[in-house]
Design a protein around this nucleic acid. Structure first.
Lengths: 205, 205
DNA sequence: GTCTATAAATCGATAGAC
DNA sequence: GTCTATCGATTTATAGAC
């Protein structure tokens, strides 16, 4: 039998895993963890039911893997942002633009965002293995720092920075959910969201 | 046997139904429809498993009933608001205050809000029987009208009113979810959210 | 009306052929 | 590596005693 040297078995295996993860992400986002059936994921991926278990041990494992990827992705985006040479307020603006774009175009980064927030807020999910949303390297806290810098420079409204980030994230999460579910067709003008950072008076007196 | 005339059977039945619905609301909000077990609801209500089916035919029926109540409640709140003698921007302010309060105090009105939005955005729920989020008497569209009035009076920023309502609702939904899940302990300053409506310049030139 | 016990259905996970 | 068929556990829903 001729061995297919062009595409090794490990390569096939890697591709399948990514394919399954990608399909699972969509299904989890649309139905939630509990309602998502393994058969749904298999159908979405275009493979048989049993093959799922050749690549993953359980539904929980797939979910955990996705949440881990989502947290990593979010952290990466924000670290990139912190390194960029931009004013704090423009970093937030860039973040909104990036998220809105990926959500609007139905890219995985957009799904990741929804998944991560859902994993945080739902009590029904198995996230034992996942690091929790507090500590030094967490996306949430990293943004608080950017907000504080913006406040210090007078670009961002005063007040509890954590509350600002909460409101900011909440709005994005809600909008992303509406978009993913098809309730809205397009994401709104990002500047609407940016107004939550707006200081009381535009002119610096 | 002495009949208990003071509390008729229909009264008992009505109380039990409300008790079950109230418990189901909490469980659905915390776990989602699919993950919520009938046994969870029964335990929360302090009754036996089997008794659930004496008052409701199925889990779907309970959920549908709750979503119907939630939509009615929301519509009622907004209708009340429209009737109030307030400036449009203050109507929105009053709405935020009311929702934040009920969510913060874990009242059913707060849960209703989360449930209604979740029912809209999740593809995994049985809402065939439920009227959908478009049409004349829908909470969403009723708010668009208030926004338009505020824009006409210069109290609210220009732009697509529907987008404003979407962003507004999204933020509230996200915040309510965070609160209900225990991720945040208190709701943020409502004025952060109100800045979404803020026109570009405060002074009317 | 309320409960316990049981049936029926669903779904995650496994076994084994190709 | 991939599939189909089956097991086993969980959960919805029903039956029947009190």
């Amino acid at each position: 039998m001729a061995p297919r040297s062009e595409e090794s078995n490990t390569q096939i295996k890697d591709d399948r895993q990514k394919q399954i993860l990608s399909s699972a992400l969509k299904v989890f986002i649309h139905k939630g963890f509990a309602a998502a059936k393994m058969s749904d994921i298999a159908t979405e991926a275009g493979i048989s039911y049993g093959l799922m278990y050749h690549y993953f041990q359980s539904k929980d494992e797939i979910y955990a893997e996705l949440v881990r990827d989502a947290v990593d992705s979010s952290r990466h985006v924000i670290e990139q942002l912190k390194a960029d040479d931009l004013e704090p307020i423009d970093k937030m603006r860039a973040l909104v633009a990036q998220i809105f774009k990926s959500v609007g175009q139905q890219q995985s980064a957009g799904y990741y965002f929804v998944l991560m927030m859902e994993a945080m807020t739902s009590g029904a999910y198995p996230i034992q293995a996942i690091e929790h949303p507090h500590g030094p390297g967490r996306p949430f806290d990293m943004l608080v720092h950017v907000i504080e810098q913006g406040q210090h420079k007078g670009q961002i409204a005063q007040g509890n920075p954590a509350e600002l980030v909460q409101t900011f994230f909440s709005a994005i999460l809600g909008l992303a959910s509406l978009k993913v579910s098809g309730t809205i067709e397009t994401m709104p003008d990002p500047e609407i969201l940016m107004r939550i950072f707006q200081p009381a008076s535009q002119t610096t007196t």
